[in-house]
Design a protein around this nucleic acid. Structure first.
Lengths: 335, 335
DNA sequence: TTGTACGCGTTATCAC
DNA sequence: GTGATAACGCGTACAA
């Protein structure tokens, strides 16, 4: 069933069928109805490839994701896909891991499939060494890029992010104001977002006149986040003789590890140890007591990504940068 | 840059360029080299739409998923995407929720985009009322379908699943053999997989001569799995006066809720209450003690889905049904 | 071994 | 309003 068959059965030319199909131009109601009837009867569906060939678009968005099994990114994936689908776009998923070469290949693949735009999920996509970001510039020369939780100033690149700096700053202040003095800061990645959070922690301390101490800032190096390993990691810090009365982390799973540490070390939460996580994920509710965490408004971020992308594709001006505020959700793991 | 430009610059016809591109036919080494050089120099990438139009394929697989933010499905998504990409296929993601109408629309969308095949993730896609499965039969008439954790006997439909029945049966026996007598069975969905598990539970009891008691079989009706709500749900059962010394669940998150219940009800795990979950997910490691759970071999299942699909697309015979064995992973929540 | 010409199914641009 | 017809870029019989 192609457009010729329909045109023949309806006794019109393919041009008319095409017009009916695309709603637009002036077609007489009678003709339109006749054509629609034939299409319905024959169960006609226009060929997406041919359409793509002519329009240079198949209404598809590329979703570049370091790891779809990460609970935070999976949630983002879900929000993005739903919003795009609701606006007539389908999503081509491309999980690349974190290596630059793989990310570059992923982008090339999406470009070769002529997606209309790409959403890059997470702050891992922007390299510290700016020469490594040429793959982004190349891509942006062809189609719009939207970065979720990433920052990269370039034409045709749009950034949507949460103010991790202030969110972490406030979380730190909240701990200090509840009487804590030795806040262990645990983080897992030193990308753009990771740096913002770390700086927020430091600024929070300084805002209350508390000195920043390197031995309280710890980088969890393992690539995979595993709760028991995190627990042991913190236990080791404890055994070094480093004293801390609070743990602030860049990610909820790290905080779950902290909660496990507390149990093993026989420290009560929050009396002897306060814990604050980041992302406000399901994991917060699994702990006893439940974890205080920073909600970084993922759903709003994702919706903004989608509307920004749609705007750009529609040729309208859009903000190069959209910044949301995080919010500290207090639960049982803090005083 | 299209094939004509390349052919002109290389001083050959487009047919020759096409041959070089597709590796196949006999082209003289000299010509091949010349063409390749021009292509490399011009950074030529063949147009995927035009290619799709001719080949009736863009090497794309549709992934139909009720919910990408579910940790189990997110993990599956990750495995599937990786394996397909490794074999030259990209994945079009379509999250549909659980409603039949939306699932049907999702399948239609994927068909309209001419994906080469569809993987249906989870057992929600097969309707109890068989008339509701016509959308599957229609789809299978066009392209191969692979069901992950689902069962549906039809031509061009392939099923890959874990033997949930036996896994649950063994989990039940394991609880009984450790001295438990009153096993609360908690489940969340009554689809194909859900029924198999429930039957496994019943068979496990019967195999040890223990009567099946309806008051110990509870369906958690809330659509969203929320740990505190599950905790309260179990607490309510307790307060009804129903006594149980073990909880077996169809899903880890339900077991996390059980662990929370135990804490609130002041019951020690595993001394006073044994808990076994299902899926062996990250959530098991978040609890204290860690949860015993059934590993249903998700990675193997996903790899089998992919290889089955690739086989079918290559025109080779493939098993209509691939069955894997689950495995009970014992941790601190059982004796 | 290489080249010509047509088909793939649409959309868009003209004429009428 | 409607109908021819030219792109769109590639694959592939068929011819040379």
């Amino acid at each position: 069933m192609n457009i010729y068959d329909i045109s023949e059965k309806a006794g019109v030319s393919i041009a008319t069928v095409s017009r009916v199909l695309n709603g637009s131009s002036r077609v007489s109601p009678k003709t339109r109805e006749r054509v629609l009837a034939v299409m319905a009867q024959q169960g006609y569906v226009p060929n997406a490839f041919a359409r793509g060939l002519g329009l240079k678009s198949m209404k598809t968005i590329g979703l570049l994701c370091p790891n779809a099994s990460d609970s935070y990114l999976a949630q983002a994936l879900s929000y993005l896909e739903r919003a795009f689908r609701g606006n007539g776009y389908d999503c081509l998923l491309c999980c690349t891991g974190k290596k630059l070469l793989d990310r570059t290949k992923g982008v090339e693949m999406l470009l070769s499939k002529h997606v209309d735009g790409i959403v890059l999920m997470g702050s891992t996509f922007v390299e510290e060494d700016d020469a490594g970001n040429n793959y982004l510039r190349c891509a942006a020369a062809q189609i719009p890029l939207v970065l979720l939780n990433g920052s990269f100033a370039f034409d045709n690149v749009y950034c949507v992010l949460c103010d991790d700096y202030h969110a972490t700053l406030e979380a730190t202040q909240s701990l200090l104001d509840s009487g804590r003095r030795n806040i262990l800061y645990l983080y897992h990645s030193s990308n753009f977002s990771g740096k913002k959070k770390l700086n927020g922690y430091k600024a929070g301390l300084q805002s209350r006149g508390i000195p920043v101490r390197d031995e309280l800032i710890r980088f969890y190096t393992e690539d995979k986040l595993n709760v028991p390993d995190v627990r042991d990691f913190i236990l080791a810090i404890d055994r070094e003789g480093v004293a801390f009365d609070a743990v602030l982390t860049s990610e909820d799973v790290l905080s779950v590890g902290a909660a496990k540490y507390a149990r093993v070390a026989n420290r009560s939460v929050p009396e002897s140890l306060s814990i604050i996580g980041y992302n406000n994920s399901n994991f917060c509710l699994c702990c006893e007591p439940e974890l205080t965490s920073v909600d970084n408004k993922l759903e709003s971020l994702c919706n903004q990504c989608v509307s920004t992308m749609l705007n750009v594709l529609a040729g309208q001006e859009s903000p190069q940068k959209s910044l949301f505020m995080g919010e500290l959700v207090k639960r049982g793991s803090t005083l």
